[in-house]
Design a binder for these strands. Sequence first.
DNA 1: TGCGGTACATGCGTTTACGT
DNA 2: ACGTAAACGCATGTACCGCA
Length: 319
Amino acid sequence: MSPDNEQQPRQPELPVALPVAWSSDPVNPQVNRLFDSSTETNRTSFSTPSPAAGPRRQVGRRQLHRLQASLSDRDREVINLIAVHRYLTTRQVEAFCFHDHASPVSGARSARRVLRRLQEQGLLKPLERRVGGIRAGSASYVWQLGSVGHRLLRAGSNAKRTHEPSPRFLAHCLAVADTHISLLATERSGDVRSVFVECEPECWRPFTGPSGERRVLQPDLFLITKQDSYLDRWFIEVDLGTESINTLLRKCAQYEDYRRTGVEQSSAGAFPLVVWQLPTQERISRLADAIARSTTPLPELFRFVLPDGLAPLVIRGAA
DNA sequence: TGCGGTACATGCGTTTACGT
DNA sequence: ACGTAAACGCATGTACCGCA
């Protein structure tokens, strides 16, 4: 352990560089960067149509600008989170933005009300593939950006056409979001002093491969935690058991290739730990064995956890 | 006028107990 | 062992009130 004023890394290889912003921000600085922060309103004054009216069909440039100015900070946060994660369930939106209400029930109710309003404004739209009936059911809505939401984030350019994702892709997006939420929960609980989370594609790392080819390392999340006077940096990979072990091993080799470029070490002082979040202990053993048998990736580069093991690992630190 | 909060209703999926 | 129905859990809806 080192004195606080030195901000020294926990390991010799760990970095000293501070992130762009810490998560004293409600959720994620990356999220807020998506929006033009020139608007200051904190309350929504845009008149919402009746539920029967449905989403607005045509929104002109002026109307778009007015809509943007009318959004509260929390509205922007919801929209940006859904943009960053691509898909979020109502429950996840609740966990991100409506966690500080008087009761969980009130938070849930408020979340549904806000999501409904943003849907009516065309900013969000729920996926059609929803388990349950028209009125209620056993699964949350899954939300994605609506056409107006896409235009808003792309500074008025044409809306991106959305389509139903494959169940596998959707499950992965939602699992990554769950991981993000669990990491923020460790900060809210006080177990970690500060958590900075970077999502795709901000956390991607373009690099030049061993043969000079252009490659991109694509972690699911990049994380910096601050504990006492130490900074720990982590790449997070979320696996749902849908990929072959060979595919995971190739990804591990890619981390090793990226590590050998030295880019991360020169910019931040050390290479982050790579954490594989895997669904079963059996799969952890298989991947760990495969890495141990392989000659390419350094085994000490990786940690393996079950879904409920990530937060304890982050709290313990990378040492 | 919009938001926050509460109470209660609704309807679907899942679980469990029971009869065959 | 299997099929069925009731009980339960859950997410969401409506309605209403108070507050800023």
